[in-house]
Simulated assay, not measured.
Amino acid sequence: MTGPEAVVKIHAMGEGDVKIVGVSADDHAMEAFMNVGADAFVPKPMRREVLIPIIQDIINKNNNAMV
Score class of each variant (00 low, 15 high):
N63G: 02
F33K: 01
E5Q: 07
A65S: 10
E15M: 14
I58M: 12
A65F: 04
A32K: 15
V21K: 00
I54N: 05
P53K: 00
V23D: 04
V21I: 12
G16V: 12
K61V: 12
G14A: 09
E49K: 04
V8L: 08
G3F: 06
G37D: 04
A25E: 06
V36I: 09
D17T: 15
G22Y: 10
N62I: 05
M46T: 03
Q56W: 04
A12N: 11
T2Y: 09
N63Y: 12
V7P: 03
H11P: 15
M1D: 03
K19L: 13
E5A: 01
P4H: 08
M13S: 07
V50C: 02
L51K: 00
E5R: 01
V7Y: 02
M30L: 08
V18K: 00
K61S: 15
P4C: 04
G14V: 10
E49H: 07
A65K: 15
G14Y: 10
V42M: 00
I52M: 07
M46L: 12
N63L: 10
G37A: 05
V21N: 01
A65V: 08
H11M: 15
E49G: 05
N63E: 12
I58Q: 09
I20T: 03
N35W: 02
V67K: 15
M46E: 06
T2G: 10
K44E: 13
V36R: 00
M34K: 07
V21M: 00
I10D: 05
H28S: 09
P45W: 05
D39G: 05
K44W: 08
I10E: 02
A6K: 06
E31T: 13
N62H: 08
M30C: 14
N62M: 14
G16S: 14
A40Y: 11
M1A: 14
A12M: 05
D26T: 10
H28C: 02
G3W: 02
N63Q: 11
E31Y: 05
I54L: 06
A29D: 15
H28F: 11
M46P: 11
M13I: 09
M13E: 15
V23K: 03
F41E: 02
A25I: 11
V21C: 01
V42R: 03
I58P: 06
K19S: 01
I10H: 07
P4R: 01
D57V: 04
V67C: 07
D26F: 12
V18L: 13
P45F: 10
A38M: 03
D26V: 13
V50W: 04
G14Q: 10
E49I: 02
K19R: 15
K9L: 11
K61L: 13
Q56I: 09
V42C: 09
G16D: 10
I52V: 14
N35Y: 04
P53Y: 00
P45L: 06
V18M: 05
N64L: 11
I55V: 14
M66L: 15
I10Q: 08
I59H: 08
V42P: 00
I20G: 01
V67T: 08
A65Y: 08
V18Y: 03
G3C: 06
I58Y: 07
K44I: 13
A40S: 13
E5L: 09
M34E: 01
I10Y: 04
